[in-house]
Design a protein around this nucleic acid. Structure first.
Lengths: 221, 221
DNA sequence: CAATAATCGGAGAAAATTTCTCCGGTTTTC
DNA sequence: GAAAACCGGAGAAATTTTCTCCGATTATTG
């Protein structure tokens, strides 16, 4: 017998799937992405989406909460696991990119939706920024992070870059995003990065060539 | 007597106003921003908008062409005026931010709209990237720009950052964008930047405080 | 393995949004 | 100061989005 409030296995799976999918869709399209679009991306019927989340705000809130939890977990993990604060910081930033933990942190601060002003969300955000602040301070003390770079700068840069360029082919968008992220990290160091990774440059021709291939994945009409 | 095709003074003014406004709206909301929204931002009636541009594609094309021209002009100017290629590069990047010459360059390469595949646009883009490539090469030779950073990286970073975070209060969005831009530029240097500008860091508390104020400017309902 | 209960998917009506025209009023030009 | 060109925005038509309903499907229990 399942306790009330427990979901059936497939229901729980779907709920999770929807949240994860919605995060990337919200991240790319902003908080007004349509419900049907999210359902389509998650390959789930509209009914399923609405059963789990009565309206956009409910979904948005769930996504926000989930994303915050993940980011907090990520920040705490890296802080504990890495000896050097700098490594914790860069792993956090890269982790955010990998998980597509997105601009949500900033959307959460705006009046874009009612839900975003929830005390719960504000609290989570404050908690995250506090941890990030500790990492940043440690990196300052350590001498690896520029002193004119704060936790707000880190969050800001992540929020800006993480979205990618949804109108571009997916892989190109991802690559440009990662390269820009690397540059930001390099720019945050006091010294030239110890191992400037010898990735070849993306030249004008590289870009042009890859722009002329197919566009972003479009849902079937 | 005006030649046919010449517009009356007020018409020309409005046309220009619409293009400039549409650029920032497209940049923030993507190529599917609604016509009415653009009209509202430009403080112009819908009729006026449609008289000048029969449909979204026409407007989008005009915006794209205009943006390309400005970017090309900007690139050429900085290249001529600045002795150091690095200075030309950073002035170009900052100029793009200031003019909100935006992700359009990348949208132009996708299949987001039919119009984006126009030969005219592709040609302009290639021209811009060629100039940028020259600046980048010069900066490489000069020893100021990392060799693993190409013109594609510069364009990519600009496109990613320039959009800002439209869901945030305008001034906060602008500041975060500018700070991130500076970090990217710093990250592109071979050496630590000669004058690491002593702007105070944006701390976690700074960010939280400014997130709790009013959201982005919303049009009157 | 069957019975049962919960969940799924998607068609489609209702609501909301967007497009785009039309015309009375205003501004520019000669 | 008259004529031609342009402006603005109300609102009908078209499109998009929301959200419900129910037959089909899938998980769970004994």
């Amino acid at each position: 017998m399942r306790a009330p409030g427990d979901l059936r296995a497939d229901a729980r799976r779907n709920r999770e799937l929807i949240i994860q999918t919605a995060r990337t869709v919200f991240a790319e399209q902003g908080p007004s992405a349509t419900m049907d679009e999210i359902a389509r991306h998650a390959q789930v019927g509209a009914g399923t989406l609405y059963r789990h989340f009565p309206d956009r705000d409910a979904l948005f809130h769930a996504v926000l909460t989930d994303a915050l939890e993940r980011m907090i977990a990520l920040a705490e993990t890296t802080r504990k696991q890495e000896g050097l604060a700098w490594d914790a910081l860069s792993r956090f930033v890269e982790g955010c990119a990998g998980l597509r933990l997105d601009l949500l942190i900033s959307v959460a601060g705006s009046q874009a939706t009612q839900v975003a002003t929830t005390p719960e969300i504000g609290e989570g955000r404050a908690r995250l920024l506090k941890i990030l602040d500790q990492i940043v301070s440690a990196a300052h003390d350590e001498g690896t992070l520029r002193h004119d770079v704060g936790a707000g700068d880190v969050m800001g840069a992540v929020s800006l870059l993480i979205r990618g360029l949804p109108t571009l082919p997916t892989d190109l968008s991802a690559e440009l995003k990662n390269r820009a992220l690397r540059l930001v990290l390099a720019g945050m160091r006091t010294d030239p990065a110890p191992i400037p990774p010898p990735v070849p440059a993306m030249t004008a021709n590289d870009l042009i060539r890859r722009l002329s291939t197919t566009g972003p994945a479009k849902p079937a009409t």
